[in-house]
Simulated assay, not measured.
Amino acid sequence: MVPWLGPEDPFPGVERALGASSGAPGLLAASADLLPSRLIDAYRHGIFPWYSDGQPVLWWSPDPRMILRPDEFKVSPSLRKTLKHVLRDEAWEIRVDHDFAGVMRACANAPRHGQRGTWITGDVIDAYSSLHRVGDAHSIETWRNGERVGGLYGVSLGTMFFGESMFASVTDASKIALAALVAHLRRHGVALIDCQQNTSHLASLGGHEIARKAFIAHLRTTVDAARIPWRFDKQVLADLVSRPGAVSVA
């Protein structure tokens, strides 16, 4: 039985999440609220919300956990060529936190293979925007000719980044934003990005699964560290273009 959490109830231990033989592996709890304080507590303990409109808030902690290590980010020859072009062409920009709610709305409207609808509802946008206002959530945005064409958003606690969603309206725009994020996190000693669940797209970029126990252990050493800065532009991409030996090249 998945527990129902009242406003003051703590999360159960992640080891109580449903197992692989269940119909919902990783499901830990449900609640009616999506308060910012609840969100922060969830991320600190390796838990995230994911549910459909009309459902209660469902809280998950899957085992294994999909992660991406910035030092293992794969830059394919075609992506490297694209990043070089972005660096040269003044029409391209990377903006950080310029339009956080707009990025969330674009992610909500992005088509997902095998999915109908979105869990990024108005209430979800409001909750994460509250985190953004206090510096705990950020958007990395790809702009071309003054138009936002791709981006991603996630939660940042200490030296840990929890990726949430991304979108692109032109080819590779989300990959450009992710590459910029990876390069920025590498500069500030961030060793791991949480990707939550396994997808072939993330695997192609260097993502892989680790045991939940190892993931939780990593959180204990990172979420209480000093915050990293969140100001950078597209020049951070030079780290991936000019030092190919520092990344895995597919």
Rank of each mutant, 00 (worst) to 15 (best):
L87G: 05
L178H: 06
L83T: 08
S78Y: 02
F167M: 07
V170P: 01
H85D: 05
M166E: 08
G150N: 10
C107I: 12
S165Y: 10
D136I: 04
I140S: 00
M104T: 07
A106I: 05
A173Y: 02
F161H: 14
F162Y: 11
V75G: 06
H138W: 08
C107Y: 10
F167Q: 06
R112Y: 02
I125L: 05
F100M: 04
E164H: 07
S78T: 12
V75W: 04
E164P: 00
V182H: 03
L178N: 02
R88W: 05
A127V: 13
G151R: 10
E141M: 06
G154F: 11
G151V: 12
Q115N: 01
V170A: 01
G117I: 11
G122V: 05
I176M: 01
A168R: 11
L79G: 08
M104N: 07
K175F: 10
Y153T: 09
D99A: 13
V124S: 09
L131K: 10
I176L: 00
W119N: 08
S130L: 07
V149S: 02
V170I: 14
M166W: 09
R133F: 03
F167K: 03
G117S: 11
M166H: 08
T118Q: 04
K84Q: 14
V182W: 05
D123E: 15
D97R: 00
A106Y: 06
A180M: 11
Q115W: 03
R144D: 02
